[in-house]
Amino acid sequence: MVRALMISALVGGVCGLLSCYMTLKGWALMGDAVSHAVLPGVVLAYALGLPFSLGAFVFGVGSVATIGFVKQKSRIKEDTVIGLVFTGFFALGLVLVSKTRSNIDLTQILFGNVLGISAADIQQTWMICFVVVALLLLFRRDLLLFCFDPTHARSIGINTGFLHYLLLSVLSLAAVAGLQTVGIILVVAMLVTPGATAYLLTDRFDRMTWLAIGSSVLSSLLGVYLSYWTDSSTAGCIVLVQTGLFLLAFLLAPRHGIFCRTSS
């Protein structure tokens, strides 16, 4: 229980930080795509005895590269391409799960199982979180500029292609970390909701990151606690608390909430 609380809070904090960039860049759909597309990578890695983060990373970045390639080489619009590619990858993952003889528990990957997390997985999650936070902190100003005005970033000689793939790589890694706690299906909530909640509460990026991390950690702790005592889905509880916090912000935020906007 304590382990589950700690690891959920950690993953929540990391995803919360990343969610600010996802919200501002408008990459919610991309987050959804990457998190689904890592499934075949996870299955293959398990089957080959490799760390699952490696497989997930390869397929996460691979899916994004595929999306970029198909979009560039055809007349199909981006959202269609995203929908097409990630479902394809996800389906491949499902088939692989049913065809590889191993003790992979599909529900565990899809919906997470933080209360039963193994020591090895905890270690891996710590490492992933460390790498993600380090990269985000190191490039935080560049990434912010990249989200805000890529043209300017480019015209002062910043390598925007690098930043694009950096953010995508970090997204894949975070999706893997989130996979442990809430599973593939709901990890996109961890990568979007805290950022959206924080965005309603402030016009400052620094404050936005702290609010996102705070709300995300709080949701993880409360969610795990609730699911433990009510014996219900952990992923469901975590995401429900997040959604609840978002609704609160949506209704009551000082400047951007709907109640305050109508009264002023």
Partner: peptide
């Protein structure tokens, strides 16, 4: 490069000071 304002997300959470400081990043 000074963009057309239409190409910029005006709700982006940055202050005027932050925006001008971005000119110094390079």
């Amino acid at each position: 490069y000074v963009p057309q304002s239409e190409g910029i997300d005006c709700d982006f959470p940055v202050s005027v000071w932050d925006v001008v400081m971005m000119g110094r990043y390079g």
